[in-house]
Write a protein that binds this DNA or RNA. Structure first.
Lengths: 337, 337
DNA sequence: CTGAAAGCGCTTACAG
DNA sequence: CTGAAAGCGCTTACAG
């Protein structure tokens, strides 16, 4: 009885080349297959003639490797991150010979198990797209995972990649102080418990300290990485007559809100108040004036995480953590021309 | 000899529930499996106890269905499209019970076959991420594919989804003429041979004609869907003293360039010259003044294409083409308050 | 340098 | 309502 799918199988190739399937398999998989030159030539010919591509499922069933990795995404927000993230992850996946499966976390915890040991060899987990408990279950069964932009839950030694939030912020505040003589620099926090925000605040503190500027608690406010909330905070400050000559907005979205509040109050940016962000989101270029900010390469993060995952799958180990460098993107909102 | 992977198999479940694997398989796959209520209960219990998830590769090998669809992306540009695209595609994939494999087209045509019959049941091809020849090969072997944002090569009846470029542009030009009394409306073309641009130009023409405005070839220029080239064209026009009171920039990126040229020349937008775009890219909100443009839902396009693909895979047929509606996004650059 | 055979974990006629 | 058995297309010891 003829097969339904028209695709040639390894047996077809073996028959055409006049060798066993074992030999074909070896030629397909081993870098330096132990076959005579002429046999090899015949096999290559047969593969080309039939346009043979090994069946992924069959291959993974017998090798117990799926040759695929997963990328698990949260279901909301992060829009600006995806394109470069995907680019980095996809590049590293291909480079390491893996297919890429993508899924985004559904709200209902219902039996839906989009990515896991049943269909991948490992997964890159972006931010909070998986619960601590599920992560723990993976760790227990030794299923490879790498966290992107998230610290592993306490006690779980899961490899992860993070940005150098602290150093990036430190450099930014240094710049404000040293280049532009700012002394009353406000800081807008991100969401409660947000790790990025935590580290950024540390960088802010370190910079002030290094320049012998006393910290003023009144200058630390809440921006929530959000345009509206940042605007509100700055409006409150303005109303209260708070004295400040610069604000580190926490991230770029917040910086947009900060600028709105400042413009509405007739303040000049950067002459009266400098405004800086973090992320170098697309919007940064279009701020008025263009926003000075801190950039971390998202593509690099994706690529690094995927590379680590590939290592983890292949060799069984990889570095515990990768800390990616950031870079100052100087535009005009800090006072630079 | 013990299995290496700790994951339970269908046999483990069968043993625990005291039934055959056949029965387990039926319970896993059939909506209304022919089993007694108590057997069913025991089986569900066993599945839950073991935390059983069917092995994807084994399942697809024996069913000759991968239960995965692919999304093939071009390797450059389109950044603003990906997040909503992915959202739509992923949603429809999950809804139809498919895993989602993502790959982006590599430049080297080398044997790399990221997505195809060997690992998916069908693929959504975004724009020009696959050559006509490769597409033809798929058609010939009846491998399901749906084109997103691309017309099938002549002679190939491949289902595809497109935006209503013509009607969207038509509505925009109508608005400029009817609401704002514009008569000298310039049009910026996209890249040579670009289909979107072609249809948009048709919409432009239809609108002029409907309002008995004679077409002036001098008002049709080249923008290439690109900020810099659009700026150059408008600068040339200004230098040449061309008379125009509005410009349809072709897309939003071009509109940014158009605005730059206009601002630099001291023209007021929209009083002297109205500027409108197409896409409603993120940048549109941040233009000065905010850009009036035409929006097509990218997520909807992705979802529709994926839905069509699922139908094609499941039923063997689907509509030949889906034409997605567009919508005017009125902001300030057209003259509206 | 080469091959026969078992087995990966499922699904699916077929039989009862 | 239930099961035994063949088979999906590969890989991988094992043997020579």
């Amino acid at each position: 009885m003829p097969k339904k799918t028209g695709s040639p199988t390894i047996r077809d190739v073996a028959r055409l080349a006049g060798v066993s399937v074992t030999t074909i398999s070896r030629v397909m998989n081993e870098p330096d297959p132990p076959v005579s030159a002429e046999t090899l030539a015949r096999i290559h010919q047969a593969i080309a003639d039939l346009n043979y591509v090994p069946h992924a499922a069959a291959r993974s069933l017998s090798s117990s490797r799926s040759n695929a990795i997963g990328l698990l995404l949260p279901h909301v927000g992060w829009d600006d991150y995806f394109p470069p993230l995907l680019r980095g992850v996809e590049a590293a996946a291909v480079e390491n010979g893996f297919d890429l499966l993508i899924a985004s976390r559904r709200e209902n915890g219902s039996g839906a198990r989009p990515l896991g040991p049943h269909n991948t060899d490992g997964v890159v987990v972006f931010t909070d797209s998986l619960s601590d408990a599920e992560l723990a279950a993976w760790v227990e069964k030794k299923f490879p995972a790498v966290l992107l932009h998230r610290t592993p839950p306490a006690g779980l030694g899961i490899p992860h990649v993070q940005y150098e939030n602290k150093d990036g912020t430190r450099a930014m505040i240094d710049h404000l102080i040293e280049k532009h003589g700012k002394r009353r620099i406000a800081f807008l926090r991100g969401p409660d418990g947000n790790e990025d925000s935590h580290w950024r605040e540390l960088g802010y503190r370190q910079s002030l300290e290094a320049h012998q500027i006393a910290e003023d608690p009144a200058l630390v406010g809440f921006g929530n990485f959000n345009e509206d909330e940042a605007r509100n905070t700055v409006e409150d400050w303005l109303r209260a007559g708070l004295d400040f000559d610069a604000v580190f907005a926490g991230d770029d979205d917040s910086a947009v809100g900060v600028m709105q509040a400042l413009h509405a109050a007739g303040k000049r940016i950067p002459e009266d108040v400098a405004v800086v962000g973090f992320d170098d989101a697309p919007v940064a270029r279009f701020c008025n004036p263009p926003l000075t900010t801190v950039r971390a390469s998202i593509a690099e993060a994706g690529q690094t995480a995927t590379q680590m995952l590939a290592e983890l799958i292949t060799t069984g180990k990889t570095q515990f953590m990768a800390l990616l460098p950031t870079e100052l993107v100087i535009r005009r909102s800090c006072g630079c021309a």
